[in-house]
Design a protein around this nucleic acid. Structure first.
Length: 548
RNA sequence: CGGGGUGUAGCUCAGCCUGGUUAGAGCGCCGCCUUUGGGAGGCGGAGGUUCGUCGGUUCGAAUCCGACCACCCCGACCA
């Protein structure tokens, strides 16, 4: 492609409202443009990146036996009512001209299960892996960070259909391995973590995370351990000594900070109350250490039910001075030992030191420095680029996807669901690989493999030499971008570094004199051995092999 | 949904507080010339349905008031 003809609107300055690096750089480099909140167009160069990621995903899912298909975005509401997923706040709903209700799909479990339920009859028809690349529509409460969190995006989602839990495990493992290969090939730094199953239902989930500053998830890491902090579990640090006894007058001191400060006690020696009401109506007081925080995901999972914070009139004791009480079910976080602890005395303006005993559940959010198998964890932000879920029979049962086993007995199909987002992979790559000058793409997903910068005027000897280099490289199947614009050298170099193609070849007067084009690796802006203008292909291939 | 902020040229912004000829700058864009190894220079020029929308105040509104809309950031939320 000739840059003089490419629709590549680069900008010197980042959009004023952009925060995330990938947002700024992808807009500046002319890869994407915003249409509305969480709605983005991919311009030609950006789309090339997206589609390179798509192709890698396709090859790896095909390799584990996936069969590509396509299902519609707009779907009858009926189907979603059956699965019990109609009416989510982030679901776009609309009526057709006859008034019939439809939804715009946020994912495709319902439809794919519908097809399977209609076509799969026998255990002989299983297993199956079906997948497609399709637009997902989600009315996100808060789209953000450019292309990282949008209301409309393309996802590869695949679904496995098996006869039992073992089969599902096999499909799950195949996807975990395929995702590992995809992210490796895309050149990302990544890891997989245990994850909350969330509203998808099912029994097991892993997320594939790309660590970067703009990440929306926090991940707890230790040697041999990686988990989303939503579910991470670790041993707590020593809270420090408690040299105190008896009751203490603490007038107006309702916060951990205030009480710990006034009595000279480490915050970790206090207990903090979190009064809740379960979905069934039961009142529960949850206690965690003063230096810890209740983790809402872990608490919901540990209680095995939803809950809401209790209102003041439901607590029945003075808020701010809550301690364990015999009158209400009490749950202690696993990091809360017998004590003694400094706790609220259940009457205003008093705290007391006492030991505690009772039901124990792991419900706190881990913090950096906690330990797993003796090793301290770190917590870092990451982008979720893919996830895999065991759905079990969450969808097959309501949607009637069953098969007959060898004994002629009807059984529900066991399902798994596996998503991965090309746009997030592209944005994560930008987050991870950039510098002051711009993007430094991994070579597998760069918009072009090589950018040839032609210096000198159009039709000069340099320009003609660049043209011929361009032609020779193209002829052997490389994706080559030729900067043939009538622009100054500085502008061409600046744009090339912004766009971030892995290999840049410069043809100017110097190269005519030496008979070789200068070669620069975008990553690290490292000078490579020059490429001879006479027979450049082998040299370019050799330089290319060495690039990340 | 709560809090904060922003809407003026393709982009980044000034002007608004303290209302008053024809609404400005830089970059970008067009023409000509010069230049051609790091966003170079000169001359000339175009570009705003008149300042997000609607309404109000006023002799007069980009500027003051109100409502609404859009977008961004923080939080809530996030299959």
């Amino acid at each position: 492609m000739r840059l003089s003809r490419l629709f590549l609107p680069t900008e010197r300055e980042a959009p004023a409202d952009a925060e995330a690096l990938s947002h700024k750089l992808m807009v500046r480099a002319g890869l994407v443009r915003q249409v509305g909140a969480g709605l983005w167009s991919w311009l030609p160069a950006g789309w090339r990146v997206h589609e390179k990621v798509v192709q890698i995903i396709r090859e790896e899912i095909d390799a584990i036996g996936g069969q590509e298909m396509l299902m519609p975005v707009m779907q009858p509401a009926e189907l979603w009512k059956k699965s019990g997923r109609y009416g989510f706040p982030e679901q776009f709903r609309l009526n057709d001209r006859k008034g019939a209700e439809h939804v715009l799909a946020m994912t495709h479990e319902e439809v794919v299960t519908l097809h399977v339920s209609g076509a799969i009859r026998s255990y002989r028809d299983l297993p199956k892996i079906l997948y497609h690349f399709q637009v997902k529509e989600r009315d996100e409460p808060r789209p953000r960070a450019g292309v990282l969190r949008t209301r409309e995006f393309i996802m590869k989602d695949s679904y496995t259909f098996d006869r039992d839990a073992e089969g599902l495990q096999a499909g799950y493992d195949l996807h975990a391995e395929a995702y590992a290969r995809i992210l490796e090939r895309c050149g990302l730094e990544w890891y997989s973590v245990e994850a909350d199953v969330g509203m998808m239902g099912g029994s097991m989930a892993h997320e594939f995370m790309a660590p970067c500053a703009a990440g929306e998830n926090d991940v707890a890491l230790a040697p041999g351990y990686a988990a989303n902090v939503e579910i991470a579990s670790a041993d707590a640090q020593d809270p420090g000594p408690l040299d105190l006894d008896g009751e203490h007058h603490t007038p107006g001191l309702t916060t951990i900070d205030a009480v710990a400060g006034a009595l000279g006690v480490p915050q970790g020696r206090l207990l903090k109350a979190f009064p809740v009401v379960l979905e069934g109506g039961e009142r529960v007081d949850v206690f965690v250490r003063g230096d810890h925080r209740v983790n809402e995901f872990k608490l919901r999972n540990a209680l095995k039910t939803g809950y809401r914070p209790a209102r003041e009139d439901e607590i029945g004791r003075p808020a701010g001075f809550l301690g364990p009480s015999d009158d209400v079910r009490t749950v202690y976080d696993a990091a809360v030992g017998e004590g003694p602890w400094l706790v609220g005395a259940n009457r205003a303006d008093w705290h007391e030191v006492r030991s505690v005993q009772g039901e124990t559940l792991d419900v706190r959010t881990v913090v950096a420095g906690d330990t797993v198998n003796g090793a301290a964890i770190t917590v870092e932000p990451a982008i979720e680029v893919g996830n895999i879920f065991k759905l079990n029979t969450r969808y097959s049962e309501p949607l009637g996807a069953t098969f007959l086993d060898e004994n002629g007995k009807e059984q529900p199909v066991w399902m798994g669901s596996y998503g991965i987002g090309p746009a997030r992979i592209a944005a994560a790559a930008v987050e991870q690989f950039h510098d002051e000058q711009g993007i430094a793409w991994p070579k597998a997903i760069a918009p072009y493999d090589v950018e040839v910068v032609a210096l000198g005027k159009p039709n000069s000897d340099e320009a003609r030499a660049a043209e011929s280099l361009y032609g020779e490289l193209q002829a052997v199947g490389l994706d080559v971008l030729l900067d043939d614009r009538a622009a100054g050298a500085g502008e061409k170099f600046a744009d090339a570094e912004l766009l971030g193609c892995p290999l840049r070849l410069t043809v100017g007067k110097r190269s005519l004199e030496s008979g070789a084009a200068e070669a620069v690796a975008r990553r690290g802006r490292a000078d490579l051995d020059p490429v001879p203008l006479d027979g450049p292909v082998e040299a370019v291939r050799e330089r290319w092999r060495g690039l990340p």
